[in-house]
Amino acid sequence: NQASVVANQLIPINTALTLVMMRSEVVTPVGIPAEDIPRLVSMQVSRAVPLGTTLMPDMVKGYA
């Protein structure tokens, strides 16, 4: 089972991601792979992401 990136806190719209905002977790459906966490740092979210939400490619500007 592949771990995905999950929000560790509420991430407001247009916030630049930092390591403390993200954790890896095995979830369904699968989201952005956990190994991409270093690449996500400083990228902005395109919408508010609630705590515990799996990050999907369309939620991060410039990821897809």
Rank of each mutant, 00 (worst) to 15 (best):
T53W: 15
T54W: 02
R39E: 08
V49Y: 02
V60I: 07
T28A: 11
D36Y: 11
M56E: 08
A3K: 10
V27K: 06
E35T: 14
I32C: 03
N14P: 02
Y63G: 04
V6W: 02
I11N: 01
V60G: 01
Q2P: 15
I32Y: 00
I32Q: 00
T54E: 01
M22L: 08
D36C: 05
S46M: 13
T18L: 04
V6F: 02
Q9N: 07
A34N: 05
V27Y: 03
Y63I: 04
V41A: 08
T54S: 05
I37L: 14
M56W: 05
Q2A: 15
R23L: 06
V45Y: 00
V30M: 13
M43L: 11
V20R: 13
V5F: 02
P12Q: 06
D58P: 06
Y63T: 04
V41K: 05
N1A: 15
A7H: 02
P57K: 11
A48W: 15
P12K: 07
Q2D: 13
M43K: 15
A34M: 08
I13A: 14
S42P: 02
V5H: 00
S46E: 13
P29L: 05
M21F: 05
S42H: 08
I32N: 01
P12F: 06
L55Y: 01
E35I: 09
Y63L: 06
T54R: 03
S24K: 14
N14H: 12
R39S: 10
R47N: 12
L51V: 11
V45S: 08
K61H: 15
L17E: 01
I11L: 11
I32M: 03
V60H: 00
L55A: 01
Q44K: 10
M21Y: 05
I13G: 13
A48D: 15
D58F: 11
P57C: 04
V45H: 00
V41D: 03
S42M: 07
S46L: 13
T28V: 12
N8Y: 04
E35Y: 12
A64G: 09
I11C: 03
M59K: 02
R47V: 15
N14C: 03
D36Q: 12
P57A: 09
L17R: 00
M43C: 04
S4K: 02
D36A: 15
S46Y: 08
P50E: 08
P33C: 04
P29I: 05
P33R: 15
V27I: 08
A48E: 13
V6D: 00
A3T: 08
N14R: 05
L55N: 01
S42A: 15
M43A: 07
V6T: 07
L51W: 13
Y63S: 04
S24Q: 12
M22G: 00
S46D: 11
I13N: 10
V6N: 01
V5I: 13
T18R: 12
N14T: 05
L40K: 01
R23E: 05
S46R: 13
P57N: 06
P12T: 11
V41F: 07
N1S: 15
Q2V: 10
